[in-house]
């Protein structure tokens, strides 16, 4: 296994990192890759900004069981 990643691999590890799911060894390889790859550095920076944006937004989604119930209710009303 090489310590040099392809850009696609590096990007996927970078994505995993946003959810704290990259392994330690993967993060090390990513950091090595970022030293010499300008494009992945850019992708990485943008990806981090996107994560921060989501944290900042406090956006919430409606619980899915409630959505299902609401759909059912609407469907019933429509057939009346």
């Amino acid at each position: 296994m090489s310590i040099f990643l392809k850009c696609e691999e590096a990007n996927i590890i970078c994505d995993k990192n946003q959810y704290k799911e990259a392994s330690f060894w993967d993060s090390v390889k990513l950091n090595i890759h970022l030293i010499y790859c300008k494009f992945c550095r850019q992708y990485s920076a943008r990806n981090n900004r996107l994560t921060k944006l989501f944290k900042k937004s406090t956006i919430k989604t409606m619980p899915s069981d409630y959505k299902t119930a609401m759909k059912e209710r609407l469907r019933q009303e429509m057939t009346k």
Binding site: N11, I12, D15, K16, R46, N47, R49, L50, L53
Partner: peptide, 21 residues
């Protein structure tokens, strides 16, 4: 899953880029 996430993140970043990123 990670490929889908990657595509989605790229698209989202592009979409939000002008006004927010």
């Amino acid at each position: 899953l990670w490929v889908i996430i990657h595509r989605a993140r790229t698209a989202m970043a592009k979409c939000l880029e002008n006004s927010w990123l």
